[in-house]
Each structure stands twice: as structure tokens, then as C-alpha cells.
């Protein structure tokens, strides 16, 4: 256990956001879901008691007759904003006084940094480069992430949970987002920052970052394992494998979409186009962890090799 190495990575000023993220993201996940669960308990109570449901103010926050439903912005909101600004400024001041922004040697194209890393928020994408070719990891996937995020409101046909925390009414949406945001995006940033060392090799926390380390890993393409040796059969085989994955993943996603009576009801509200876009995005999102596992567990490099592109 190389504690010095661990401390070196964790205490790097540029890594503060990532170390902070390890605590901040779980905290806010808990903080949000806790309010969701509180609302869910109220929901159950109101569903069992229609009379109460009519009379109730429908919030977990306290409310009594005679209280104003709205408050003047000045001073009630503005003082909170002022307080937030003061606190943020204070944190920023202390942070800037105690920790210096990194400055390396002058840029030198003939001396490659090892490991040479992108800014921390792009390390998830850089980590993806291990599993996919650059055109997928660096171009197609980021584009799909942006498009996928933008279309969320247009494919989510669930009218419940609008403007309040809830888990029970939006299980599918919340799990999808947590899967994409925390399990894929955030954890890959953490891996890219803290785990990937020289040569972008995997170093468990506490392992020394040895610049001379060699890993004798033979990554093979799927068709080589099967024993197919010539095109066009390689391409056709890969196409079939990818097609098979799409079918299986699509079926699995469909089973989730029709899992309960409520989700079937939401599906009934969706148009064919909305369903197709949802399925396409879910399948591509699932392809990422599947390829990660194929690479890490079975050392598979490509599953689909064609003369023009490899997947």
C-alpha cells in the first residue's frame, strides 16, 4: 500500500473537484431522494384516503390555514441569495488563498506528459477511449449525450412528479438518470482521475504509479476468438453480433418499460417516434457498460470489424 502515492493524487489541487464529487454527489442524491421518499409516504396516505386528499395542501412542508402561499421576494428570497453569495465568496476566497492553480513547464510538443489527461470533466470521455475507437468515444457518444439530454422532456410522457421530489411515481426515469449520470458519467470521471496512471493503465488506489510498468495483455477481436479469418465474413459476423445485442437490449428495455401497470399506462401515452427514440438512446447507453465488461473481463477489442470502421 503506497499511501504517499494515494495522497499525491488526492491532494493534487486540480483533483479537488473530483475528490469533492465523491462526497457531494452521494450527499445530494440522498438529499433529493429523501425528500422524494417523504413525498411518497404522503402520496400513499392520500391515495388511501380520498377525503383527506381533497382537503390536504399536498405538500410535506408545513402549512396552516391563514398562511400566505406566497412570500415577497424582498426580503425572503433576496436575503437567501445574498447569504448564498457571501458563503460562496468565502469558500472561493479560502480555496484560492490556500491552494494554487497548477502550472507545469512551458508547453513542449516533443515531451509527452505521461499520463496526459484531458480536463477532469472530460475524463469520462477519455476513459471511454479505452473501450471504443475515438470516433465513437470522442464524437458520437458526446453528441448523443447532448441530444439525449435535450430530448428528455420530449420523450418523458409521465405527467406525474412535475415540480416535486418523488421516487415512486418516476422510478424508471430516476433510475435511468442515476445510471447515466452517476454510474456512467461520474464514476468514469473518478476512474479516469484517480485510477488511470501512466500509460493510461489501471492502478488501484494505493498502487505506485510505476512509469516502467508493463502489462502483457492481448486484446483480441471477437471474430478471432470464434475463428473467422476473412472478410466479408468478419464484417457479417460482427454485424450479426451487434444486431443481436440491439435485439436483446431492446427486448430487455421493453420489458422494463412494460414492467408495471403504471409504466404500461405511460407507454400508452407515447407516440411511436417517442418510443423509438427512447429505445435507441437506452440501447446505446447500455452498450457502454457491456463493452466495458467485454473488455475488462474477456479482453475483447472489437466486436465488429469492417474495412471502414470498427466497433
Amino acid at each position: 500500500m503506497d499511501w504517499h502515492q494515494l495522497w499525491t493524487i488526492i491532494s493534487l489541487p486540480d483533483n479537488i473537484p473530483i475528490v469533492g464529487m465523491i462526497f457531494i454527489i452521494p450527499f445530494f442524491t440522498w438529499f433529493g431522494l429523501r425528500q422524494g421518499f417523504a413525498n411518497d409516504r404522503l402520496l400513499e396516505k392520500l391515495e388511501g384516503d380520498p377525503k383527506l386528499a381533497r382537503a390536504h395542501h399536498r405538500k410535506t412542508q408545513p402549512f396552516q390555514k391563514g398562511w400566505a402561499r406566497e412570500l415577497p421576494v424582498w426580503p425572503y428570497l433576496l436575503r437567501m441569495e445574498f447569504l448564498a453569495v457571501v458563503i460562496v465568496t468565502f469558500i472561493l476566497m479560502v480555496w484560492s488563498i490556500t491552494l494554487d492553480a497548477p502550472l507545469e513547464e512551458p508547453a513542449n510538443p516533443s515531451l509527452t506528459m505521461n499520463p496526459s489527461k484531458a480536463p477532469w470533466y472530460f475524463l469520462g470521455l477519455q476513459e471511454m477511449l479505452v473501450y471504443f475507437d475515438p470516433w465513437i468515444a470522442g464524437v458520437v457518444m458526446p453528441t448523443l449525450i447532448i441530444i439525449g439530454l435535450i430530448v428528455i422532456p420530449y420523450i418523458d410522457e409521465n405527467p406525474l412528479g412535475n415540480g416535486y421530489y418523488t421516487y415512486k411515481q418516476r422510478k424508471f426515469a430516476i433510475w435511468t438518470f442515476i445510471f447515466g449520470f452517476i454510474i456512467l458519467w461520474c464514476s468514469m470521471i473518478v476512474i479516469g482521475t484517480l485510477i488511470r496512471g501512466p500509460g493510461w493503465m489501471w492502478f488501484w488506489p494505493g498502487m505506485t504509479w510505476d512509469h516502467n510498468r508493463l502489462i502483457f495483455e492481448i486484446n483480441r477481436d471477437l471474430h478471432e476468438i470464434i475463428g473467422i479469418t476473412s472478410q466479408p465474413w468478419i464484417g457479417i459476423f460482427g454485424g450479426l453480433v451487434v444486431g443481436g445485442f440491439v435485439t436483446v437490449a431492446g427486448y430487455a428495455c421493453h420489458r422494463l418499460i412494460v414492467a408495471t401497470e403504471f409504466t404500461r399506462r405511460i407507454l400508452g401515452r407515447m407516440s411511436l417516434l417517442q418510443y423509438a427514440i427512447l429505445q435507441a438512446l437506452l440501447i446505446i447507453m447500455l452498450a457502454l457498460p457491456v463493452k466495458i465488461l467485454a473488455r475488462l473481463l474477456f479482453r475483447i477489442k472489437y466486436v465488429w470489424v469492417t474495412p471502414w470502421f470498427n466497433v
Binding site: 502550472l103 508547453a107 496526459s116 484531458a118 475507437d133 475515438p134 470516433w135 470522442g138
Partner: peptide, 26 residues
């Protein structure tokens, strides 16, 4: 500096793999 130079090198190298618009892309 080295940090920014290599980070941007890594970042923009992906652009050469853009399908149809990069010289190393499909």
C-alpha cells in the same frame, strides 16, 4: 504550459476521428 497543451492535444485529437469530417474518422 504542459498541462494545458497535452490536455488540448488529447481533446482535439478526438476531432480528427469525426466521421466524415476528420481525416482519421470513418
Amino acid at each position: 504550459d504542459q498541462l494545458g497543451f497535452w490536455a488540448v492535444t488529447v481533446g482535439t485529437n478526438m476531432a480528427r476521428a469525426t466521421p466524415m469530417l476528420g481525416h482519421e474518422g470513418p
